[in-house]
Design a protein around this nucleic acid. Structure first.
Lengths: 114, 114
DNA sequence: TTCTCATTTTGATAAACATCGAAATAATTA
DNA sequence: TAATTATTTCGATGTTTATCAAAATGAGAA
């Protein structure tokens, strides 16, 4: 039962839902997410670790950066079902729509070290 | 987005998951739920109000008691999908299996006023 | 090897939450 | 009407959580 409450708890925060919707479109590094969410880097990092711990995402080193992406290979079907339902539920949300516009032009070289 | 975090937050507590699984089998009053969960009446009442606020359950007066039941007519399809997924995920959970044994013999006349 | 820099961890703070017992409420029964 | 009683609300307490800034980490670049 703890595994299930951990999964639902991971989805119980606005910033984490925004992160998941963004990652469904595109793999992103911590500083790119920070530039969209406008919270501190340490907060983004903490949210990512909660989502990873729950099984929604994985991380991958890419040169200087850590790319976070949806864990498409997670064997728990609930994870994928929740991602789909969440995406559908939020498809017209104004904050989400703004976020999705931003990832089109986001550029980690410009953003990092500022 | 707040509506969605409210829904997922409602599912982020062990006692509330136990309540939902019980109500999927049988409508129950507050004191019946209390006798199974072994937490205080005010805590059960609070959990029920959170589940009701999120759209999972409704209440109905029946003589001296308030019966809580799954809101089968909630127009939000996510609610029903989450209930089904949650039930499947917890189908072999030992605490849930014990709970389900108990509702077979639970009797509100014997339980209340103790 | 040393420096740089993206990320994580730590420590602190304020807000939210789960829980309880006691008081308040409301509705049925006597 | 008065008493009973199932439930809710209130007030208090301890725990968890979201957040930030600063320090630590660790991997690539010089």
């Amino acid at each position: 039962m703890e595994e299930l409450t951990k999964i639902y708890s991971a989805l119980s925060d606005k910033n984490r839902l925004r992160i998941l919707i963004l990652l469904l479109r595109k793999s992103l590094c911590v500083c790119e997410l920070q530039s969209i969410l406008k919270v501190s880097l340490s907060t983004v990092s903490k949210h990512l670790s909660i989502l990873k711990e729950a099984g929604f995402i994985i991380d991958e080193k890419d040169k200087k950066w850590v790319n976070y992406k949806i864990d498409r290979l997670n064997p728990n079907p609930l994870i994928h079902q929740l991602l789909i339902s969440t995406e559908i539920f939020l498809k017209d949300d104004p904050i989400i729509l703004e976020d999705l516009k931003k990832i089109v032009v986001v550029n980690r070289i410009e953003i990092c070290s500022n």
